[in-house]
Computed example of a mutant assay.
Amino acid sequence: MPQVVEQQIADLTSVLGDPTRRAIYIAARESSEPLTVGKVAELFGIHRNLARHHLEKLTEEGYLQVGSQPPSVTRRAGRPPKHYESTSRHIEITYPTLRYDLLVELLTKIVSRVSPDHLSEVAEEVGREYGLELADEIGTASDAGYREAVQGVMGAMSGMGFAMNPDWDGGRLLTYHCPFGEAALSYPEVVCSLDRGIISGLFEAIERCSETVLHPHRVRHEDCVTEIPVEITARS
């Protein structure tokens, strides 16, 4: 575990590790009015000195602050009790950023150096298998018509981070955002074959024949074009 995360956890547990103190903090956050030592002692059935200790500790660490006496409280002679209320401090633990984009880039570099003669074929087959698994997870209708089939594929791809528009007249899907980013530009023979396989697997799962042809973009911001038959027929 990274040292910064360990320190964040240690800081939290040193203040909020005690269950009673943690409960007092939660009560202060949820209360519509500030809490006093007497009120906390009454709520949790503890001695006033212990209640004061927990409140002061939470105040020292910035989780509570001493506020003004609410208007609903009648002022009495003598020293007024402190009223504790929650601050705007947030409790969070920040982990280092996950770099899936870097992982994809490095993996595609590795794959590109292995069996180059069959690279595209293997990538498409892996994509097809994933497309079948994805369709099984989300559920698909085997009697879908052409538009329903295309929209179903678009929905599944959207869930993966793709953004597509249909070209109904041209029998095409236009992908204007690919979640694989730079990896698709640098290694289209791997990434785009994978995409084509996923789409083919999705169509296959709804028992529709689709000889999809994917034309990858060559420059940034250019659409990828997936050609699909205008009339998709059910498999025999």
Rank of each mutant, 00 (worst) to 15 (best):
L107D: 09
R21Q: 13
E125Y: 13
R52I: 04
S115F: 13
R128L: 12
D101H: 09
L119P: 06
H118V: 13
T108W: 03
R48F: 05
E42R: 14
T87L: 01
G131K: 00
T140K: 15
P71Y: 02
S112G: 03
H53M: 13
K82L: 12
A135R: 12
G38R: 09
K57C: 12
F44Q: 04
G67W: 00
H54P: 08
D143L: 06
E133Y: 10
T108C: 13
S68Y: 06
S86L: 06
R29I: 08
S72I: 13
Y63D: 01
L103Y: 03
G145Q: 03
E129N: 14
V73S: 07
L132D: 03
R22G: 09
G45T: 03
D143P: 04
V111K: 05
A123K: 03
I46L: 12
G139Q: 07
S32D: 11
V66L: 06
P19E: 09
L43S: 12
Y84G: 02
G145E: 00
I91T: 03
S86A: 15
A141G: 10
Y63N: 02
S112R: 02
L50R: 15
I93R: 05
Y146W: 06
S115Y: 12
E148P: 03
G139D: 07
R21N: 04
L107R: 02
K39E: 15
I24E: 05
V150F: 05
V104Y: 12
P34I: 01
Y63W: 15
D143Y: 10
E137Q: 13
R29H: 10
A77H: 12
H90D: 10
R21D: 02
A135M: 04
R21G: 08
I110A: 09
P116K: 08
P81I: 01
E124G: 15
K109N: 15
V104E: 13
P80L: 11
R22S: 13
P19Q: 08
V150I: 13
D117T: 10
E33R: 14
S31A: 15
Q69W: 04
L134T: 03
S142V: 11
E60Y: 07
L107K: 02
L106P: 05
V150R: 04
K57W: 05
K39Q: 15
L35A: 01
D101K: 08
L106H: 12
R113G: 15
E137L: 11
V150D: 05
Q69F: 01
H47N: 15
R48H: 09
A144Q: 06
R52T: 08
